[in-house]
Nucleic acid binder design. Structure first.
Lengths: 211, 211
DNA sequence: TAGATTGTTAATCGATTAACAATC
DNA sequence: TAGATTGTTAATCGATTAACAATC
């Protein structure tokens, strides 16, 4: 099995599977068939079995899938047992929202700290984390083996700060700016949350419906 | 041309085209070929010509595409000239961030107002908008023909509030909660921003790289 | 005109679905 | 055992790419 050959489409369905399995575990269900899982997620049973079989064999004939067993394996495939370290770069409203509402620990990440360039925010505490001065960022990344940097700063500085983060040694960037980040030949992974793209797609469907 | 037959993949590339065209206009470029556009976006020229031809013929042989002309048509296809109305439901940090940073007007939307259940926030002003009491929401939607509701509240109330919004008459929901919203048979469009899905995909690629 | 580049058709590629032998 | 359901192969479907006549 060549992991890197798994289609992007399949990978982007994995979080949905994980979430659904958490629901099922919460409800106390022990097992589920691809048929029932497909019904609940709006996918065909074939597709689900095929998706899972990109990574191994997680079911049993005549039984289906054990939800806890499958959940554990999906979490492993997603790297959630690796306890990736993560920092926040930029503590504007989006950054603050993530600090307050996103449970990094529950998802298996180690949140290390938040950095900010605005001196009024440096030293203040949000969700139990004392905001650090962006000047210390480079050294912090070098000292702490940071896997993921959340980039939530103004778009106009995005590429410059991304370049700095990459030079400091982060492995990946979770990009909340509108900018398209070019990681050059660093091999750094960039995953985008582009608000406007999403709203424009919504607008398209809305517009289409009117006709 | 049956609009509803345009593949989702194509539609989700439209905002990227629009953004690139804005860049080109900004730089003062007048025309661009599918070849050059493909090089800049990492797509094949064939795909780009095919994407555009789902909606009409926007180029000229031997010339290519006029960027302003094409930009205008893409904006129209995305419904950005319809001036869809939009309200914010929930003024926590994410909502505040959108109010302060997202230029709804520039994208062609009419931002009408923000609603909040928390009494301490009602009446305060953010980015020039006075937060309204959630109790007035239903009547406001009925009175003002609201096209889009931004749902940025806690996930546990998401479906309930979504049901209310749908009953009041919103046409679509831009969902920032982790919940999967079920629009029932209302025909309401739901577009999701699922932060965790995105981070988990990032984690997958990071995990894969380590092996 | 000659060169460039479109819109579109045909060929290819990849993903989804259907079918089924294997087996719990 | 009989019924259920997997993993996987074959068939189908749809999207991407290549090729090219049309034409600016």
């Amino acid at each position: 099995m060549n992991k890197s050959s798994v289609p992007d489409r399949v990978i982007r369905r994995l979080p949905r599977y994980l979430k659904k399995l958490d629901d099922l575990i919460c409800k106390g269900d022990e097992r589920i068939s691809s048929n029932e899982l497909g019904r609940q997620l709006g996918l065909t049973p074939s597709q689900i079995r095929r998706d899972f079989n990109h990574f191994g064999e997680f079911g049993w004939q005549g039984y289906g899938y054990n939800v806890k067993f499958l959940r554990r394996h999906l979490a492993h495939i997603l790297g959630l047992d690796k306890r990736f370290s993560i920092i926040l770069v930029g503590t504007g409203k989006i950054g603050q929202s993530l600090l307050e509402n996103f449970d990094f620990n529950q998802y298996g990440f180690r949140f290390l700290g938040a950095f900010e360039i605005c001196e009024e925010l440096v030293g203040t505490t949000i969700a139990g984390y004392t905001i650090m001065d962006a000047k210390l960022q480079d050294q912090f990344i070098r000292d702490n083996h940071v896997d993921i940097a959340i980039l939530s700063i103004k778009s106009s500085s995005a590429q410059r700060v991304a370049d700095e983060l990459i030079a400091s040694g982060v492995k990946s960037i979770w990009n909340f700016t509108e900018a398209e980040i070019d990681p050059g030949d660093s091999g750094v992974t960039v995953e985008n949350i582009h608000f406007s793209d999403s709203l424009l797609v919504l607008s398209y469907f809305l517009s289409e419906k009117e006709n």
